[in-house]
């Protein structure tokens, strides 16, 4: 049985998400999304993922939201006109989520609901026992004090075991940057060179 906090923050996240779709003014939608992200961040914290929760607020509710608001203001978006719902579209919008929900319920019922176990730092610390001659790191110090060094653990995992995907993501970001430039640059003022081919 999850704690009452789980239900409260889930409710905040879901309400925010519904409001995001329902609002007609883009700025209100963006604000509703912030609410949804804050609920989500609280859920992460409830799962002992403090770092992910804080990043969720800093990056999504902070940086990305500001970006969205800038774009909305720059493009000067007006409230969306409410169009008449097409019956076929409406039916599809109802049938697909209901099918999905039925399937999800079926899956959840076929699995056992296990009670939430608090994180056992003493047991987890055994994975990080110091080898002979190895330097003592913050991870070791924190675990000895029974504190969760989650930032360091994420950093360690990302830069050692998951180093390869991280590099690929680097190339991905480069490509995205090239895309932004080449899809949005204005023509230069230089006179166009005549095309050399026929």
């Amino acid at each position: 049985m999850p704690s009452i906090a789980f239900y409260i923050f889930s409710l905040i996240a879901v309400t925010g998400a519904v409001a995001l779709v329902a609002f007609r003014n883009p700025v209100s939608s963006a604000m509703a999304m912030t609410g949804s992200f804050i609920g989500l961040a609280a859920l992460f914290v409830g799962l002992n993922a403090y770092f992910v929760g804080i990043i969720q607020i800093l990056v999504y509710a902070g940086a990305i939201m500001v970006l969205f608001l800038f774009i909305i203001m720059l493009l000067d978006l007006k409230s969306e006109e409410r169009s008449k719902p097409q019956p076929l579209m409406l039916a599809a919008c109802l049938v697909i989520p209901i099918l999905f929900l039925v399937q999800l319920t079926g899956v959840l019922q076929s699995t056992k609901d296990e009670p939430h176990k608090p994180l056992n730092l003493v047991a987890s610390a055994k994975h990080f026992e110091r080898a002979e001659g190895e330097q003592e790191t913050i991870i070791h110090q924190n675990l000895a004090k029974e504190e969760l060094p989650d930032v360091h653990l994420i950093g360690l995992t990302l830069f050692t075991r998951y180093n390869f995907p991280l590099q690929v993501v680097g190339v991905l970001l480069l490509v995205a940057t090239i895309g932004v430039v080449s899809l949005s640059k204005r023509g230069s003022d230089r006179p166009a060179k005549p095309s050399t081919d026929s």
Binding site: L174, V175, I178, V181, S182, K185, G187, S188, P194, D197
Partner: peptide, 27 residues
């Protein structure tokens, strides 16, 4: 295909805007 590509990119008529089109497929 570059003649058609150049028509619809930056500075139509020149091939100024087609450079990245040769780099992106490599990535």
């Amino acid at each position: 295909y570059r003649a058609i590509l150049a028509k619809f990119t930056e500075n139509p008529g020149s091939e100024e805007g087609t450079g990245e089109y040769y780099a992106l497929p490599i990535f």
